[in-house]
Design a protein around this nucleic acid. Sequence first.
DNA 1: GGCCAGGATTTAA
DNA 2: TTAAATCATGGC
Length: 283
Amino acid sequence: MIKKITVDSEFFNPKDTLECGQIFRFFPAEKGYLVLSGSRACELINEGQNTVIVCDEENEQYFYNYFDLDTDYSGIFARAQSSKYGILKKASSLGKGVRILKQDSEEMLFSFLISQNNNIPRIKKIINSLCEKLGEKKNFLNHEYYAFPTASALQGASEDLLKECGLGYRAPYLRILSNEILTNNLLSKLKDLNEDSLKAELLKIKGIGEKVANCALLFGFYKTKSFPVDVWIEKIYREDFGGLLTDRSKITAFFINEFAFDAGYFQQYLFYYKRSLEKQPQN
DNA sequence: GGCCAGGATTTAA
DNA sequence: TTAAATCATGGC
């Protein structure tokens, strides 16, 4: 049985939400997009005033939560609009339809582990390649897709297979992380932690530093008091906030101090804005 | 052909 | 404690 969830599109635009850099597994479809999370799939379609989520009945609650439908984004948007920083007004106007997705924690850990020193098109390519080689084949409506690989599938993959996916020097990081997940039950340990101790635990994982930890906090564990700083954010910090700090962890601290629990949302507005102005046309 | 990408680890100073 | 060097890979 197929279900449809219909939501007002003012604060939920599929393009804004999917293309703001938080998710790597989505594909244009005949109408809207095919969106994948773990082993599940849905379609996300804009119909003027409405945004429609189409999914199997058994996944209805999952995607309701996934798209963060219980959070009212009008307040977040209003605070961005009334900010003393003009750039935040512009950025939030452009990205008014952005929502922070509640993605699968394990998938996000692996995904952002792959993201380091990498660009978004290639990150997508690597992850899709991993899914095709190691994920379970599934079907939804007329779509054929692959689930995100399980930790044991990733752990069991040969070095050669991982390199074929384009992982390069990151391949060992994935193996170490999947081993932690399987032997130490890492995910259930992480789920109960508050943001400070969670961040400390994330930083112990090989291949996860300050930036990736912040991404994992925000996109994998929904801690909105986090603020990933990459080259785009550093650029906007320098050019539009007049910032002078160069140490990225200090830049993170600056923004968290400014925006507190809005930091993660505002970061996405800013990242999406800056990148949409300057990104190369083929993406 | 050198530079860059949702950087982190290792090694040197 | 901070500063470089190094790590695959593909697009420009």
